[in-house]
Design a protein around this nucleic acid. Sequence first.
DNA 1: CTGAAAGCGCTTACAG
DNA 2: CTGAAAGCGCTTACAG
Lengths: 375, 375
Amino acid sequence: MESIAKYPGSLTYWIMADMPQEKKQALNKKSSHQVVTVADLARHLGLSAWTVSRAINGHPEVREPTKQRIREAMAQLGFRPNLFARGLRGHGSGLVGVCFAGLHSPILNTKLYHLQEFLRRHQLRGLLEISLRDPQNELRVIEDFLGFRVDGIVLIHSTLPAKDASRLLAKIPSVSVDPHEPHTITTVSLDRQMAMELLLNHLLNLGHRSIALLGIGRTDAWRWPALDSLARRRGLDPERLFAIVGNAQMAERGIEAGRGMAATVLGMTPRPTALLCLDDRVAVGAAQFIKMAGMLIPRDFSITGFDNLDLARQLQPTITTIEQNPSALMETAGELLLAQISPARGRRPRAASRMIAPALLTGESTGPAPGPAGG
Amino acid sequence: MESIAKYPGSLTYWIMADMPQEKKQALNKKSSHQVVTVADLARHLGLSAWTVSRAINGHPEVREPTKQRIREAMAQLGFRPNLFARGLRGHGSGLVGVCFAGLHSPILNTKLYHLQEFLRRHQLRGLLEISLRDPQNELRVIEDFLGFRVDGIVLIHSTLPAKDASRLLAKIPSVSVDPHEPHTITTVSLDRQMAMELLLNHLLNLGHRSIALLGIGRTDAWRWPALDSLARRRGLDPERLFAIVGNAQMAERGIEAGRGMAATVLGMTPRPTALLCLDDRVAVGAAQFIKMAGMLIPRDFSITGFDNLDLARQLQPTITTIEQNPSALMETAGELLLAQISPARGRRPRAASRMIAPALLTGESTGPAPGPAGG
DNA sequence: CTGAAAGCGCTTACAG
DNA sequence: CTGAAAGCGCTTACAG
């Protein structure tokens, strides 16, 4: 285990390690007039530490005037109780470790925001760390969280293998939000299958019978199975209905990738009438290329995205897309975490798996299929 | 002060408060076989707590084979030292409080990422909190940080008044990155004046003599003074050179606002030949409107943005913009923080103010002014 | 409300 | 390396 290598102590430690002995003592000793502990403050006010502690924590045994005096002295002296000492007493740290992949994706930002709001409402603080999409990093972050005796852990877009997640998080309240691979700990995720069905049904209902998939291939873990199965259920042959264009790796390039893939689609015969794109950025790029080529959306092509970025709503045409409902997602994650931190009947609930329903947001980019369906 | 109201104790606290006495004790008591402290681990291994502690912290007094044994036992038993107890011993917590406004702005994400990378390289952990652009919230977050005895604090895009920042942060290593109003604590900020000069000089050198300012007005705290002063230095009358269109509040709407303001510009006589936009989103919207109106960029209009979002590089035309150099910004902030945490000569350096030079990124959206300059 | 004491889990000076 | 002890700054049961 790398725990040891990873605990070189804080900077301050190493600095003080090199100091002469007197200096250390000078630093450690507080000047006689400084108020740095609850006891100091009690002495300063002629009260006992008990009273100060109870007052700070809002207990009813201390009368309001006394509380007021203590409050004022705290403000005036700039005294704040040491939260480490409080945490040590076994109250729970009041911290929730939040590990997220990184900040590239705007949707992740929104999720993080809703979670922070939830935690704040429940008197918890988020200790945020970035995993950089690297499972190794994520392990390290979780080790840190455990060292801080956090009350709970939330993983967002975790890339950790399910067994590592289970092993590390079995004993601590934890929720995994939209993990890369299915986790066996409590999980909240967008109902991705439903999302794909919303998009495909929308296009099928508009009469499209030849649909290019931009950045979505047969190896896609959930998009392809969902599309394939829905097509069959509606009595259509996936091989004829779909034309696979590009792949997920190409699609990483975003808008530019969308332009390139749209160019490919324009060269196809028979030409698809709809473009079902990996995400909004690809959709925006595709729409841009098609407009530049002098064609009209949705007259000549219908286009769908995924994620409901600002981008998708603001450019013209606005893109038909999937709204992830990040607020419901993170509220649910918060509730599930809380249920573990403070179990209703004293017993921690079993690992749950919750799906959040997405919504279809229709924009200007989709319309009836032109003429007879191709194929 | 609201410290008192704000310390209701953690959830665990309230839960336990309602429990019968025996239950509390059961929860608090560790089973005889569990290893939860350094002493437990020492006993389990037949070593002393001293040895385990020194081994965990990588001190040289413990021999490698013993360290190895301890490492393995830690991994096997899942033991992790309680970081609260460590923090309490006065080593410094190893934490740096990072308060940022929110996650709306992509540039903020990038800054945060670079800071986290810096902290990680220096064995520090970031305790992240969101202020939601609310000074009141920011105060609360800083109080929290101080309670955790963080080794330092970084404010990003702080909306705190300078005097509050000074009062709260005078005694603790701290850096303010791109604060809204100038701070008197150590500050790192983008050289905004230079940024405006780069943009304006670029347009002037291309022959533009009638420039619409989209979302930038006379009340803009730094953009307007920079533009005004540079115009005068180049012997031009700001009143004739600039046409103010819209305001910062309108520009909040982003791309859509850009479209609206561009529409206004098209109706002006004499018509400006360049659009200097508040940010990239406004620029993208303006470019889109102008293309839709059947005009060409940069033949008929030159357009500049600000921020170098992916957006600006990916849509067509690519937008001439300002690259903020977030990496240099945050590395500098990190270095300045470190210099305070571990002062070279034992004395904390005085508050510094550092400017980071931006760079002009020329895209396809700017070119020579058409015909004789308007005005 | 007071006051003295114990304990949370570490680190560290001290004597060996 | 051991072992016993002190101390970091809180909270809390206890006797008054």
